[in-house]
Each structure stands twice: as C-alpha cells, then as structure tokens.
Design a binder for these strands. Structure first.
Length: 592
RNA sequence: GGGCACGUAGCUCAGUCCGGAUAGAGCGUCGGACUUCUAAUCCGACGGUCGUGGGUUCGAAUCCCAUCGUGCCCGCCA
C-alpha cells in the first residue's frame, strides 16, 4: 500500500512543480519523524527557496495549494509545517491497507519475471559448522527469502569446495591414519568423526618427520593432479570424504533451518572440461602472461597490483579459476547471481569479477554480500583446522536449553489458562531458542564485526527474537479467543470492515506501520539488506504493543463494528509479523 | 607499506547508500503498571562533543579531504 501512496505523492509533487516550471529532479520525499501527523513529507521547498525568491515556508504553502487532493486516492490532506509539505493519508488508504493485509501472503510483491541464484554458506566440507561460519547461512537464507518476497524467482545454492588442496589433505589423512589413534569425537556425527583425521593430518604436515611429510605431500599432489585430470578414481576417493562430512554439516544447517535447492560441486567444472576451457580463453586475453611457469592475469589496469594466478606451474587450476567456470554456468541459467561471502574473500571475489569481465561477461548482475568475521573474546578466530571455535550444534543446543528453562520459569506466572503441554514447551523452546540466535545475527549489518559471547548471543530480553515473536503470539491469542483459526483467519472475519471505526492514534499508527511493510521488502531487497526487516519488526512490535495496551478488541464494552474492525487489524498484524519473521527465518509462535 | 570495512549513550545496536523537523531503541541504573485479549509486555527518569580536525551546504551522524583507533586482506591456499 505504501508504495502506491508514495507513487501518488511523487506524481502529485512532480505535477505541482512542473505547473510552476520548477525542477523536478529531486522531490525531497521523506518519512517524517514520529510526532508528525503525516506519513510522507517533502523538503523540496528548501531547495527551491532561492530559485523562487521566497522563504521556504512560503514556497511550501504555495506547493501545497497547487495540489488538488480531490484528484488523489490515497491522500486526504496536504498541509505545511514550516518548510515541510506533509501528506496525510485518506480513509481509502487505511481501508485498502487493512484489506490487503488480511491476506496471509501480505508483503509479497508482484512477480518480476527475473531469476536470481543466491549462493550462500559454501563452507568447505572439512568439519562441523562453527559459529563463525553460521553468519553465512543465516544472512544468506534471509536474503534469498527476501528476494523471493520481492518477486524474484530464487534458487539457493551451496557451492561445495571438493577440489582444493585442503580436501586433498583431508583425503590423504582419512586414508592414512587409524581411528584408534584419534581422540573421541565430540558428537556421533560424520562431520565430527571425520574432522579428527583432518586435524591430525594438518598437524602431521606441520611437525611430522621430514621424510614422511614429503611422502605425504607427494600423495596429496597426486590426488590434486588426479582431480585436475578428471580422473574417476581420485574423484571417488575425495567424494568418500566430502559426502560424509557434508552430510553431517547439512544436518546441522537443517536445524536453523537452512535448506538448499542445489549443492554444486567444484569438481563438476573440472570433469566437464569447463575449467580447462576457461584457462585457455584466459590465456588468450591481452592481460594474460606466463611467468615462473604459471599463467597469470595482470590486473594493474584495474588498480589491482597483485597478479591473479589462474594456472599453477604444475598445471593445476586454482579455486578462483574454477569459480570463473562456475559463474559462467550460473549465468547460463539465471539473470542475477548473489553471493554471500566472508570479507576475507573480498580480493578473490574482485579477481573473479575481473576475470569474468575480461572474458566478455557483464558482471553487473553479479552481486556479493560481504560479512565480517565472528571472533571469540580475546580476538581469537574460529578455525576448523585448529579446532578453535564454537560449534553451531552446541550453540543451538544451549539456546534451546536456556529457552526451555525460561518457558518453565514462566509457567506459574501465566495468566492465560491454555495449559501448555510438554510438546508446546518443547516447540516454544525451539522456536525461541533458535529464533534468538538467528535474529541476533540477522539484525546486525553484516559489515560489523561480531565478538561471540554466550550471554549476549542468548539474551532473550533486549531487542531480541522473543520480543517480536511475542507480538505474533499475542495476535494469535486474540484471534483464538475470538473463535478464529490463526492459520486461516479470513473465513472468520466480518465480510465488511469499517476502518473508520479505527480512529485512535494507536490504531492509525498501526495501520500506517502495516502499510509500510511491502515498501520495506522492496527497499531491503534492492539493497540486499535483510537487517532492515529486523529493524522493521521492532518498530512494528512497539506500534502493536501500544495498540494492544490502548485498544481492547474483545472486551464487553466494545461495539460490534469496532470489534470487527479491530479483529481485522489484529489479523493484518499477524500476517505482517508472520511474514516479516518468515523473511528473517525466525519462527512465528502461536503461543509463548 | 597498500587496499577494503568499521568507529553513534557505560554496554549492544538502528539511522549513513539517497544530507533536512528536538540523533532513536534495547540492556544496565532508578521509579512506576498484572481482579484486564498472555507482564517474554508497557510507562517514566537518568544517559550522546555521532572517533578527531578541516571543508562543501540555507542545513552534515549522513557528502568530500585529512587524521587516529580496530578488524579483514595483500599465497602458484580456500
């Protein structure tokens, strides 16, 4: 609804300025502070004051006069407050907003007929997913859902690095060491069991006997050569390790939940010859040169001093070379490609982009979303190889445990006599616990570095998931109390809603906030900023809680029209919050 | 040394892209509100030279320059 209002205001302003032959390049449309009555305003009068030769407030007044609100559907009044032109919404705007939000898919934007692949997580299959890596699927999943709400046709990919040196090391270690010599696994799960070989292998290469290390290096080299040559045997040896570890990682990611449409293996682009093809085409570009036995790209014309090596002296390709082939494959199938990736890959990603561009690709439709590292207190990093870091499984277990304690502590204080069952308690603990972890991460700008601290990550107070989830539970509670099914409210709502009955400030504010949701989706999707939806859920929760406090829905002294209208507003609120939470990947609880 | 990012209240963060109305939340501290559709809620108080210094502008947390601090990167690893 808000997008329509905004369009209308823009064209009305444009027309008013044109009528007076004033520039229309910057309409100065903005959202006014909370204590101003309007929902949209323009500060254009500031800029025009010089040109018109009058003070800004006078210019604003003249512009307001120029606009005929009778011709506008969603604007009721145009008022000025000093230099600002304020637009107040019409009854039609309020009515249509409530109407639109009673549909349970509220917030979805029209189909754009544009496909986009969101690649996220893509953690190397070397061991259990730790909290440092968890930022990726949480942001990535939210971005994918956000784009889907914004009308794009979205696929989610996990790119499996099954071809690098680390995987060759892992394969060699898996085949070499005896399980009896390994420590007990931290969990009975393939990723925890196998990572022991990986860690032992890396430690051995670092300070094992020189001769044995040399032999091991030769074996590792032969695995890499085998993969490069598309050798079936090498592929099978690596796959034996990769598939087991990845299986364990997928189980953990599924707990978030993060699901993928496709797991794309790096070796695929070696076996099908596309990496070789990329190499030969790169060798032909003007920027390519051969030095010290390796093929490289001179990117200094792009301000990048470091040459990009795309073929090693031993003839094997590098990660980024294979990623070029991978991205050419993506562009054959999708209009856009978005990659969620750690900031440590920023330079590599830029090399990828330049290489693609030198091969004649338009890289405008390749976008990336960088997130900063998650460190442990004291500045220590998280490393699978060294075994430092907090495993995501442990974090989720702890989150659920703490949430369950919280639910149980609150049982005695509950006013509502809905008799939570054991299943309910378990459900709430899971929704709140995992929701809190996701919300804590998705609500922050990805570029900000995070230091992991248990108490902070699992704080259920603050501006956290339970705070916004509670609004959803409150909505469901009211709907159920009124005899409606929260899962399908439309059947139970009155057929005609008199939104004029929703006249208090609290009700108006709530409708206005609901109306902004589709706009927030569009804006957040355009900028790939899911954290804005988290900010929105907080603002929405505050607005709803004010309504909850001031506007009883089911009390005896509420007349039927008001009750019906408020019930519709609660249903609209429920859909808004449920869908906003859905974008964030946070579960919307029916009760808490 | 070079590149990129970040710096807003004691703490954790919105707001910065696209400059506009007294810079917003939460936590913490202090004081209030459950015979009421669930108090995981709400109301109030206290708390900020928006890292620092210049510049542009009618107007700067927001744009530009410089500078300091922190993180990440600068490998024929991924």
């Amino acid at each position: 609804m808000f997008p329509a209002l905004r369009d209308e205001v823009a064209s009305a302003l444009d027309a008013a300025l044109s009528a007076r032959e004033l520039p229309t390049d910057d309409l100065g449309i903005e959202e006014p502070p909370d204590d101003v009555d309007s929902v949209l305003a323009s500060s254009v009068a500031f800029r025009l004051a010089g040109e018109v030769g009058a003070a800004p407030p006078q210019v604003a007044a003249e512009l307001a006069d120029e606009i005929d609100v009778d011709e506008l559907r969603y604007v009721d009044r145009v008022e000025t407050q000093g230099p600002y032109v304020n637009f107040l919404p019409s009854p039609t705007y309020y009515a249509e907003t409530v109407e639109a939000a009673t549909a349970d898919d509220y917030g979805h934007r029209p189909d754009r007929d544009e496909s986009v692949v969101v690649e996220h997580t893509s953690a190397n299959p070397t061991g259990p997913v730790h909290v440092g890596r968890a930022r990726n699927p949480i942001i990535g999943d939210a971005v994918a859902t956000l784009l889907s709400y914004a009308g794009y046709d979205v696929d989610r990919h996990y790119y499996v690095n099954d071809a690098g040196r680390q995987i060759a090391v892992f394969t060699w270690a898996y085949e070499t060491f005896d399980e009896a010599d390994l420590p007990e696994p931290q969990r009975e799960k393939a990723d925890y069991e196998l990572v022991r070989y990986y860690r032992k292998g890396n430690a051995f290469l670092e300070d094992g006997p020189a001769a044995e290390v040399e032999a091991a290096e030769a074996e590792i080299e032969s695995i890499m050569q085998g993969l490069e040559a598309g050798d079936e045997d090498a592929y099978e040896r690596v796959t034996e390790v990769v598939d087991q570890v990845l299986g364990g990682m997928r189980e953990t990611l599924a707990r978030l939940p993060a699901e993928y449409d496709e797991f794309v293996k790096e070796t695929r682009f070696m076996q099908d010859g596309s990496t070789d093809d990329v190499v030969s085409r790169l060798q032909d570009v003007d920027e390519a040169f051969y030095e010290d036995g390796a093929w490289q790209l001179d990117l200094s014309a792009f301000g990048m001093e470091k040459p990009f090596v795309f073929l090693r002296a031993d003839g094997t390709s590098l990660y980024t070379t294979r990623d070029v082939a991978h991205h050419e494959w993506k562009f054959e199938q999708y209009d856009r490609a978005v990659t969620v990736i750690g900031e440590d890959h920023e330079l590599t990603f830029e090399e990828l982009r330049k290489a693609l561009s030198l091969l004649g690709h338009d890289t405008e439709n390749l976008e990336q979303l960088f997130y900063s590292w998650v460190n442990l207190p004291g500045g220590e990093g998280m490393s699978t190889r060294e075994g430092t870091g907090i495993d995501l499984d442990d974090l989720l277990d702890e989150a659920i445990d703490r949430a369950r304690e919280e639910v149980e502590d609150r049982l005695d204080d509950r006013i509502r006599d809905d008799d939570l069952t054991e299943d309910d308690i378990e459900r709430i603990a899971r929704q709140v616990g995992i929701g809190a972890v996701r919300y804590d991460i998705v609500a922050k700008q990805p570029t900000k570095a995070i230091t992991f601290e248990w108490d902070r990550a699992l704080d259920f107070e603050a501006q956290s998931a339970p705070y916004v989830q509670y609004v959803h539970a409150r909505c469901c509670g009211i709907l159920e109390e009124a005899g409606l099914d929260p899962g399908n409210v439309q059947d139970g709502l009155a057929t005609t809603i008199d939104t004029d009955a929703l006249a208090t400030d609290a009700e108006r504010d709530l409708i206005e906030t609901i109306g902004r949701f589709p706009w927030e989706i569009e804006e957040a999707a355009d900028d790939l900023e899911p954290h804005r939806i988290a900010t929105y859920t907080r603002e929405f929760a505050e607005t709803f809680n004010a309504f909850y406090r001031e506007c009883p829905v089911l009390a005896d002294d509420v007349d039927t029209d008001t009750r019906d209208a408020r019930l519709a507003l609660v249903a609209a609120s429920k859909h808004t919050m449920a869908n906003a939470l859905n974008v964030l990947g946070v579960a919307p609880p029916r009760s808490m």
